[in-house]
Design a protein around this nucleic acid. Structure first.
Length: 704
DNA sequence: TCCAGGACTTGGCACAAGGTCC
DNA sequence: GGACCTTGTGCCAAGTCCTGGA
């Protein structure tokens, strides 16, 4: 079998940002002609090569008169939207349940319904349960799988609820609270200015949050330290506050050591002790981990209330280090149906509120003190409520596929609109479509790190090059996006886009908005007018999914073995991750594990050589045996080499996010079926649970 | 009409769990 | 069975988008 030939090489250039941010650039060396089948082409890829030539249907050269349009008034007024929000209020919502829509079933109905469902499922199990299963499963595994399937709710075969209604009946056990603080043993001291200081319980707990982060970069960050120290001092007694006035004189090392020891102890526990803990966890999961929705048992995603700690804002978050307070039952709102048994609050406590709102999907909510935002307990991605939404998301993206040609025509026309706002909208949409940029909502600089998306790009985030590396009209993007991850890309763009950008930047300083006549609301309103349900983020989903589909078609060789096919799949997945700028830190273990793999490959090669020699001298029945050995070793050797390639190409790219959030799972399922790859190779157990609907729906002919 | 706030999705990382190797 | 490595999961921050009330 032929070696896997890399269809195109991706050279990921790593650069360090001044603040140490990572960044990744894909130099796609695919030739233009590879993408000649233009309407099926994943735009996101083409843009990285040269977008000025990739659209045949763009009207050939228009007059340059656009540049002569007097834009005299364009920048004078409304230069900037008003400054954003002041402090947030926590508004207590009314009991907003719609009585007409809400008809909860009686409790006994639920039981009946469940029994009925179980019976039905048992009947249909023999026909449906084999889907996606490999043939060589052990009986134990099979039994486990069957048990798991007991609660499968095939919601995609049922009628949908009226719009706005999320459930008819909902019951659950409420949240599980963080365990109470346990004081440090007497021998563990916090020191101030070299002296042991006995802290009050509150102050000690918060010192502990800091102490166990000593190894982390956070504790050398000025903002983090300032915020921490400010909040810590607020929690001290007056005498503590009087004494402890300088963080530099605080010594948390013993606390750090203590928690490390605790962690080591846990690791070194006996089997029985570990088992006891596991059982305890399982019991908690059993009690709190499930909700009943419309008679169906559904997994909850996060039934634990977030424990207190220090806020770990990312990038240059202005609030990092602030104290996240302990949440008490009195802070918590419970949402469940009226007829359900209301979960009891912990002894001696009561809930802030019990609500019966079936227009929302959350079970429990509370308000977090650092940013004043609401936090929720919601259902697991495998639940009907999440799955249905996911399915709809991909259906919307598929609808976009059918109309994206028209939309592109419209925004191309708009490049020469007389109205500045229309031109800006068109160029922004061009970026969103071609580069899969995020929308870029406005942010309050006091509340969050300075990151941007498309609509919030500032002049300082792009550079215009008339020519660069043999290409014309190149735009260089360099900005921090979501999670302060750097987006760096040099893109050849449509000539009219380039001209427009020059125009947008005229008479502006670096800190000014590039699209000063545009925001996400306006853009989304425009998109809604083109198609109901169409928003900026649909483009990301669409472009990701279409890219996967196209790349799979291009890269998969039906004659390959499963390992080779999986390399192709991962490469297709990687293209999407690059498009979406899904980066990860190179794992600390990368070099080491690559070296180990390298050694394995060497050893295997030796082994193979020896086996080949053996084969040469073998006679009679031994010859057949030796031949088999050589074949087996060859196979293993190839697998190792594939694994090395895959691992190395992947070191800086995170595939998980796109797989979980952007790629229509039916594309992957169809690919597995078509090329005879077990679906377990592509989706692990959790992913299969999340995408159960897709596993059931898609056959090998599925087209996104 | 505007915009703050609510609801929900997207996102990377840390660490636990589980598998493999010796 | 312990060390080491890989994979999976939980966590919770940070986005998007929509809605309700002023």
């Amino acid at each position: 079998m032929a070696e896997v030939v890399q269809p195109h090489s991706m050279d990921h250039q790593h650069k360090e940002y001044s603040n140490g941010e990572r960044h990744l650039v894909a130099h796609d060396t695919v030739k233009n002609e590879d993408f000649s089948d233009e309407d099926e082409i994943p735009w996101g890829q083409r843009i990285k090569m040269d977008t000025s030539t990739d659209r045949k249907d763009f009207k050939e050269e228009q007059s340059d008169s656009e540049d002569d349009i007097p834009w005299s008034q364009r920048m004078k007024d409304d230069t900037k939207k008003n400054g954003s929000s002041s402090s947030r209020k926590s508004v207590k919502k009314d009991e907003s349940e719609s009585e007409e829509d809400y008809k909860p079933p009686a409790k006994k109905d639920r039981k009946e319904k469940e029994d009925k469902k179980k019976k039905k499922e048992k009947e249909s199990k023999s026909s449906s349960k084999d889907k996606g299963r490999t043939s060589n499963e052990s009986p134990v595994k099979r039994k486990k799988k069957e048990e798991e399937q007991d609660d499968v709710w095939e919601w995609w075969k049922e009628d949908k609820k009226p719009a706005g209604v999320k459930w008819n009946s909902l019951s659950h056990m409420g949240p599980l609270f963080a365990p109470p603080y346990e004081r440090l043993p007497k021998h563990v001291h916090f020191k101030y200015n070299g002296q042991n200081v006995h802290l009050s319980e509150n102050a000690e707990e918060i010192a502990g949050f800091y102490g166990r982060m000593l190894d982390h970069d956070y504790t050398s960050n000025e903002v983090f330290n300032k915020n921490f120290f400010h909040d810590w001092r607020k929690s001290m007694t007056s005498s503590e506050r009087e004494l402890i006035t300088d963080l530099n004189k605080c010594d948390f090392r013993q606390i750090d050591v203590y928690y490390k020891e605790q962690s080591e102890k846990r690791k070194a526990m006996s089997k029985d002790e570990k088992l006891a803990i596991k059982e305890e966890k399982e019991a908690e999961l059993k009690k709190y981990g499930f909700a009943f929705i419309d008679g169906h048992k559904q997994k909850i995603a996060n039934f634990r209330i977030e424990p207190p700690g220090l806020f770990r804002g990312r990038g240059g978050h202005p609030k990092m280090g602030k104290l996240k307070k302990r949440i008490m039952p009195e802070d918590v709102i419970i949402n469940c149906s009226k007829d359900s048994e209301i979960p009891p609050a912990p002894k001696g406590h009561k809930w802030k509120e019990v609500r019966h709102d079936n227009t929302v999907t959350w079970l429990v909510s509370w308000s977090e003190n650092v940013l004043g935002q609401n936090k929720y307990i919601m259902l697991n991605p495998s639940s009907k409520i999440k799955g249905e939404k996911d399915y709809e998301k991909y259906e919307t993206a598929r609808r976009l596929k059918n109309m994206v040609g028209n939309i592109r025509e419209v925004y191309t026309q708009d490049f020469k609109s007389k109205e500045m706002r229309v031109r800006q909208r068109a160029v922004a949409l061009y970026f969103i479509d071609k580069l899969a940029l995020r929308a870029g909502n406005e942010k309050d600089v006091d509340e969050a790190a300075d990151t941007v998306g498309c609509c919030s790009l500032r002049c300082e985030h792009i550079k215009l090059h008339e020519a660069l590396d043999g290409k014309e009209n190149v735009v260089e993007f360099d900005f921090l996006g979501k999670d302060s991850i750097r987006y760096f890309n040099q893109v050849a763009v449509d000539r009219r886009v380039f001209k427009n950008l020059k125009l947008f930047m005229e008479n502006k300083s670096q800190g000014d908005d590039l699209f000063d006549r545009l925001d996400t609301t306006t853009l989304n309103q425009h998109l809604q007018s083109l198609a109901p349900g169409l928003t900026v983020k649909v483009f990301r989903t669409y472009n990701a999914s279409i890219t996967l589909q196209e790349q799979l078609a291009k890269l998969t060789n039906p004659n390959d073995n499963v390992a080779q096919k999986m390399l192709s799949y991962n490469r297709a997945n990687r293209q999407v991750a690059i498009l979406c700028n899904h980066q990860r830190a190179v794992p600390k273990t990368h070099e080491k594990s690559m070296a180990a793999l390298e050694q394995k490959i060497k050893d295997k090669k030796k082994e193979l050589k020896a086996a080949k020699n053996e084969l040469k001298g073998a006679r009679g029945p031994n010859k057949e045996k030796a031949k088999k050995k050589v074949d087996r070793l060859k196979d293993q050797y190839k697998k190792l080499k594939i694994s090395r390639t895959d691992k190395d190409e992947n070191k800086q790219i995170a595939l998980g996010t796109s797989k979980l959030n952007y790629l229509d799972p039916r594309i992957s399922v169809a690919w597995c079926k078509k090329f005879d790859v077990p679906v377990e190779k592509v989706f692990n157990k959790t992913q299969r649970e999340k995408f159960r609907w897709a596993l059931d729906m898609a056959d090998e002919d599925y087209v996104f």
